[in-house]
Design a protein around this nucleic acid. Structure first.
Length: 337
DNA sequence: GTGTACGCACAGTTTACCTCA
DNA sequence: GGTGAGGTAAACTGTGCGTAC
């Protein structure tokens, strides 16, 4: 229904305009909160939030203010309802939205709050973006990160039609830096060798940073504290992965050693069983101590020659351990591996 | 004691960028 | 030189935990 009618609703000083959705575009309703001199006027205007389009083009339809007024510095609060294309639905199914509408296939809530900068020096900062199923806290330090909260879901949907590309180009283009905002690209920082070396050095000293250290390091490296924080997080993760790989290799070796040991012991058991069947007299010898030579794996009651040979040797050269021996690779890894 | 807000660390994921066949 | 595969690492998201109020 919304796609077929143009509806204007007046509420006191507010004007709500519902614009028909065209092509694969979606409709969003945006609230603009303008801070003017000592009074606040609310504007309600519509915007198109193209379903395949990460940025929201806001068209001011206020009777009191034109687009120029809108571009003045102020707060912009946008609330959008965007209908999803089929492929987007598929994408979203990967991360099911608890509040998704099954019948309308609307992203139930797209809320943005930010500053609308004026003229050629716009400094917009999206504070929060409430997506269809979660709240994004926008903490990215870059101006290019203004749209980065959209980058996760929306960037996968960047196969825009030519029409939409043209519209995308028409979006806020204020400075070179903000081109990234329009293009919705996430520029990736590449740390210099010096920066990496210093970070590594700091990491060796301490794998975690307190806020003061973080600030100091960031200043020293000419980076943002957030970037230093992220680097340390990723570095810790890499360390853990490496350590896990080392542990895995160790366990593999232990497993191999234990398998060999098990094979040897089973063989030993078989031999003992065979000896028991062949010479049951051993078991009838009172006071005799059954011993095994670990090197030649022969059974005896005393000396290395096996059965006591008549020479009274009070102390056998080898004997079974008094208690069963359970190997623990963790308590004694070096012995087995 | 309980609820809330905040900060931090971590696991997992995404993605820009690089290397190499 | 162009290209795709795979790897690396910066950045992001969600979650859990501790702490202060």
């Amino acid at each position: 229904m919304l796609t077929r009618f143009f509806c204007v609703l007046n509420f006191f000083s507010f004007r709500l305009i519902i614009v028909p959705r065209s092509l694969s575009l979606s409709l969003s309703l945006c609230f603009s909160l303008f801070l003017k001199t000592f009074h606040i006027s609310f504007l309600l205007f519509t915007s198109f939030a193209f379903s395949r389009f990460p940025s929201t083009i806001i068209i001011s339809l206020s009777p009191e203010m034109g687009f120029d007024d809108f571009s003045k510095t102020g707060l912009v609060l946008g609330l959008g309802l965007s209908e999803l294309a089929d492929d987007q639905r598929t994408t979203l199914k990967k991360k099911p939205a608890p509040c998704s509408s099954s019948s309308l296939d609307f992203e139930p809530c797209v809320l943005t709050l930010g500053f609308s900068g004026g003229g050629g020096d716009t400094h917009r900062k999206v504070i929060d973006h409430v997506g269809p199923h979660h709240l994004y806290r926008q903490a990215s330090p870059h101006s290019s990160a203004v749209c980065s909260s959209f980058s996760g879901k929306v960037k996968r949907e960047r196969d825009l039609s030519s029409e939409e590309v043209e519209l995308e180009r028409a979006c806020w283009r204020v400075s070179d830096e903000d081109d990234d905002v329009c293009n919705n690209t996430r520029k990736k920082l590449r740390l210099s060798k010096q920066q990496s070396a210093l970070l590594e050095e700091s990491f060796k000293q301490n794998s975690t940073l307190n806020p003061k250290q973080k600030q100091g390091l960031a200043r020293q490296l000419n980076l943002l504290p957030r970037q230093v924080e992220v680097w340390f997080q990723n570095r810790r993760a890499r360390t853990k992965v490496k350590q896990t790989e080392v542990d895995c290799e160790l366990l593999k070796k232990c497993c191999e050693t234990l398998t060999d040991e098990n094979r040897r012991l089973q063989k030993e058991v078989q031999e003992l069983k065979a000896i028991k069947l062949a010479k049951p007299v051993y078991m009838q010898m009172s006071g005799a101590t059954l011993t095994i030579c670990p090197s030649c794996e022969r059974v005896g009651t005393g000396g290395h020659g096996g059965v006591a040979d008549g020479n009274s040797n009070p102390k056998p050269k080898f004997s079974m351990p008094p208690n069963p021996f359970f190997y623990n690779p963790f308590s004694n890894p070096s012995a087995a591996c």
